[in-house]
């Protein structure tokens, strides 16, 4: 006996030919919205495993509704101590490596299992949604829901959502061929009720600079974006282990995010393309006027390329 019985459901999901029909748009939108609502309105506490490239991490996570938002805590339980804490006001990352502690403010409060945007219905314009059977994750029955891109500009997800609550228990990021790029999967979860909440106050370190401030004057123009993408952030910020300030722009279709970093070009910039080993992360560095532009994201190459080639200096 081999691992075949374990592989079967995953391979079935990633097979090119899928028997399940794509849901009509209204029904698909309702599914996505239900999943989105569940991940942001339901208290939870558990352990999940993240598999990305050749790396596997186990993390504990908890969340509880706080007004119309969530308070949550994400904590790595292997490797370097890494913790993300979020409340409606602020989100911070604490990383301890050896005797060094690094504290950074995050610009966003979301993390797994909160994958879908608050308003999830528009995703059906860019993704097909179809159910693909059921499974069992972390001891709970769940329905597989495939969220597959309609074009080459985004990756897809295969979610397994709790049959009762629609809470995401497993999420597999897949490429256009249905091959897995990254996977989150709960090993233990307790849904509903009141999770144990870290009552410690949010850490405040006075020497930590403000994470970001809005970009006052855009120095480049984006002439065209891949369909469905819009700019959701444009801030001036400092990066860890990186000299000087950069402009950080973020473009998203609600599920796929791509970042653009702009900084002064101190010397002529070669156009360099980068790609992670499994192709999940794509990036490009190029010169735009007197700036170095770095476009990077967990997105297919056409998305990164389209964004990079649409940049032009602004007078």
């Amino acid at each position: 006996m081999t691992w075949a019985w374990l592989l079967a459901p995953v391979l079935a999901l990633t097979a090119p030919a899928r028997a399940a029909d794509t849901l009509p748009a209204p029904e698909a939108a309702a599914w996505l919205q239900r999943i989105s609502d569940a991940s942001r309105r339901l208290g939870y506490e558990g352990l999940f495993v993240l598999r990305q490239g050749g790396n596997t991490q186990t993390l504990s996570v908890s969340g509880r509704p706080s007004g119309s938002n969530m308070e949550s805590r994400l904590l790595s339980v292997d490797g370097d101590h890494r913790e993300v804490r979020c409340n409606p006001q602020v989100s911070v990352t604490l990383v301890t490596s050896g005797s060094q502690l690094r504290l950074e403010k995050r610009l966003n409060r979301r993390h797994f299992p909160d994958l879908l945007p608050e308003n999830a219905a528009p995703l059906v314009n860019w993704y097909n949604v179809r159910p693909s059977g059921s499974d069992r994750v972390a001891g709970r029955e769940c329905n597989n829901v495939e969220i597959l891109p309609r074009d080459v500009f985004r990756w897809g997800y295969v979610l397994c959502v709790d049959k009762i609550t629609a809470f995401p228990l497993r999420a597999i990021m897949v490429n256009g061929d249905g091959q897995p790029l990254m996977q989150y999967s709960f090993a233990e979860i307790r849904l509903g009720g009141a999770p144990r909440v870290d009552r410690r106050p949010m850490p405040v370190m006075p020497d930590i600079p403000e994470a970001a401030r809005p970009v006052a004057h855009a120095r480049v123009e984006v002439t065209a974006l891949p369909p469905g993408f819009s700019r959701i952030a444009a801030v001036q910020r400092q990066l860890a282990n990186h000299a000087g300030e950069v402009e950080h722009w973020v473009f998203s279709d609600g599920l796929t995010h791509v970042s653009l970093f702009l900084e002064p070009a101190t010397r002529p910039v070669e156009t360099i393309r980068g790609q992670s080993r499994q192709g999940m992360i794509n990036m490009i560095k190029r010169q735009v006027g007197d700036l170095q532009a770095t476009v990077l994201g967990e997105a297919p190459w056409p998305t990164v390329e389209a964004l990079a080639t649409s940049l032009s200096p602004r007078p």
Binding site: G53, R106, F112, L239, H257, F261, R273, G274, T294
Partner: peptide, 25 residues
Amino acid sequence: YLAAHQDFAQAVIAPAEMQFTRVSL
């Protein structure tokens, strides 16, 4: 860059093994 991008992505960073090449856009 990847760490900063995580603010809007997965929140959990795994060191990325990247391959680089010179390209003409």
